[in-house]
Design a protein around this nucleic acid. Structure first.
Lengths: 357, 357
DNA sequence: CCACGACTGTATAACGTTGTAAAACCAGGG
DNA sequence: CCCTGGTTTTACAACGTTATACAGTCGTGG
């Protein structure tokens, strides 16, 4: 079936003009019910399906948006991708996925549209990209930015309030009596203002009258389990003995917990740990992980809506959209709850919960 | 920049015909160096970039292949997606990602091309799809199947030898002296032959003269951490007390370990656990996870090559390609190695290693 | 009964690219 | 000087769709 049937074939079959078939396909209003039915019958009979390439050529739109993420291995991005795909599907848009590895080179290529040249719009979650890299990119493809990096540029940006979220996490730890809170996952060789989570960590510690010296910050190259483990090991090897750790994301927090466990330190009794992103994995370790939980579904939805809003050449004022988040308290800060084995739906969210926009 | 410049504009600027510009762009051979340079200069001056929609319409190809996976949240699929994207990029192809949730309805839609109608080929990893669902799908879009499901249909299929891999895993457990090996993650209400991993589990147990009765098999609806946890809890609640567990995949194995831990059972002393897929997460828990490790990079590469090989209407004989795998032994079967905290690169692979094609 | 709108349907021309076939060009030999 | 044969360039059609502008059709009111 479905060898290749065009409007012309359907028109011949129904004995009408090509445009009339097109009108039926596109639900054009001035078509009599009788005619509509006749044409529809031919469409069904022949199994006609519109050729999108031709439609795109004619309309100048492709119906495709690109989503460029640092890496899919991190479940946060995978779940975010799922949210974007679902949101796009609701608008009859298709998502083309790309990954940059968080490398500036790749991020530039993507932002310039060199990797995918068939797209109507682009959603990009940059890691190393700098503001200057976005100066002269093609104007006809709208761009929406996601994530922690904050640029002073005329593009929409969707993110949670990273500084506030980091402060909440640290406040949670301080409220539990912790006095020496390490940060794992600063970016190597970057000015701090770019690092909203470090900034929140520092601000909250200072506000509490606690130390936030450089010995408590571990910079890393990557953002995976192994990087978190290495950073944790480095802090312990330096002789510091923090009683709490705030990690840039969940995989790093889990990597850090692995090292703590291997060295005989108990979580949370000796060291409390808070992660970021609330990935599923954190809910099923031997010690479940307290984490900042961004509303991924909302972020995906808002990103898609922002891109689509800019399609018709309309250019609404660039806006910074704040998605909501919650701090979800689990065993890595609150200790073990005997009944919780992950089988019950609620699986570990509890009193530390707090919602923010 | 880059408002919208076509071959016509370049031709006018260079004072030649449209086709000549096209010839230069496509590296057609009969173009004098002088002419080539003159045209190239105009191309650069105007910043011309080919319109892919038009090219696609003309050539009947889009340069896009679709990859449809059950879910991105499972890191195995995320890593597989990354491998496919990289392989496709090497062939100057772009990947359009879709997820089916493992639901038959969605899988049918995808296989019929209803979700993405701009693609040259499709790579699909089915879960619930049945052979009959593929009977009459569009012939002009080549399909390659991935994963455990094995159909007797004329499509390429890329997978590891699931039966052999499962037997290796069980043999590993039996070799360690385990006598009661449970299987977690059978499919509810399906005939067993479709379930290669259950079959391997059963075959190997029988070959060892051990029991493989139904009380040791836990069927599940989904394939995530929570499903594994629930299945493990169900087995324990039934009064059975297996000394080993083989799970359909790593997330389920990790969910099961969470339940074992919550109930005071030690891994591996009381219960040894083996997973499947070797996701990163398994290498950083309090107890690292022994797992079957498929060569994801090869699977992604082979899948892309298979699809592209069938593009020109050429139809090579459908083939079943076996990718390689290894069984990677870690703490969940072999016990704790004091020095291993995940910081060192090798991170836990050891004597249980064995490679297979 | 004719003219006038409002409503339906149709022919034609694009969109930007590439394949085909034919035209223009250029040496070299008769 | 013209013809021949090969190379380079060009004109034109086509891919399948939608927008535009026009031609019918039909009911209604003067």
């Amino acid at each position: 079936m479905d060898v290749r049937v065009s409007l012309k074939d359907v028109a011949a079959h129904a004995g009408v003009s090509i445009k009339t078939v097109s009108n039926v396909v596109n639900n054009y209003q001035h078509v009599t019910p009788a005619m509509r039915e006749r044409v529809q019958r031919s469409i069904d009979a022949l199994g006609y399906r519109p050729n999108l390439a031709a439609r795109h050529l004619r309309k100048g739109r492709t119906g495709i948006i690109a989503l460029a993420l640092p890496e899919l291995g991190n479940p946060y991005f995978a779940e975010l991708a799922a949210a974007v795909i679902d949101a796009a599907t609701r608008h009859e848009y298709i998502v083309l996925l790309d990954h940059t590895g968080g490398r500036r080179e790749q991020e530039i290529l993507v932002s310039q549209g060199f990797r995918a040249r068939v797209i109507d719009g682009l959603i990009l979650s940059p890691i190393e990209l700098e503001a200057e890299d976005l100066r002269d990119r093609p104007e006809n493809v709208p761009l929406v930015l996601l994530g922690e990096r904050d640029y002073d540029l005329p593009y929409d940006h969707i993110a949670i309030d990273n500084v506030a979220a980091a402060r909440d996490a640290v406040r949670h730890l301080v409220g539990l009596g912790r006095r020496e809170v390490a940060f794992i996952g600063a970016r190597r060789g970057r000015s701090e203002p770019a690092q909203l989570r470090v900034r929140g960590w520092r601000e909250e510690l200072r506000a509490a009258g606690l130390s936030a010296d450089d010995g408590l910050v571990a910079a890393t190259d990557g953002w995976g389990h192994a990087d978190g483990a290495a950073a944790m090991a480095r802090i312990l090897d330096s002789g510091r003995r923090p009683d709490a750790v705030f990690a840039y994301n969940d995989p790093m927090a889990i990597g850090a917990m692995r090292v703590l466990h291997a060295r005989g330190l108990r979580v949370p009794e000796d060291v409390a740990v808070v992660g970021f992103d609330d990935v599923v994995e954190g809910r099923f370790g031997a010690v479940t992980l307290t984490s900042v939980s961004p509303d991924k579904e909302a972020i995906g939805r808002l990103a898609v809506e922002s891109v689509l809003a800019r399609l018709g050449g309309q250019a609404p004022e660039p806006r910074r959209v704040r998605a909501e988040y919650r701090l979800v308290g689990r065993e890595s800060t609150l200790g073990h709850h005997p009944a919780d084995d992950g089988v019950n739906g609620a699986s570990g969210a509890n009193s530390a919960d707090s919602a923010h926009g």
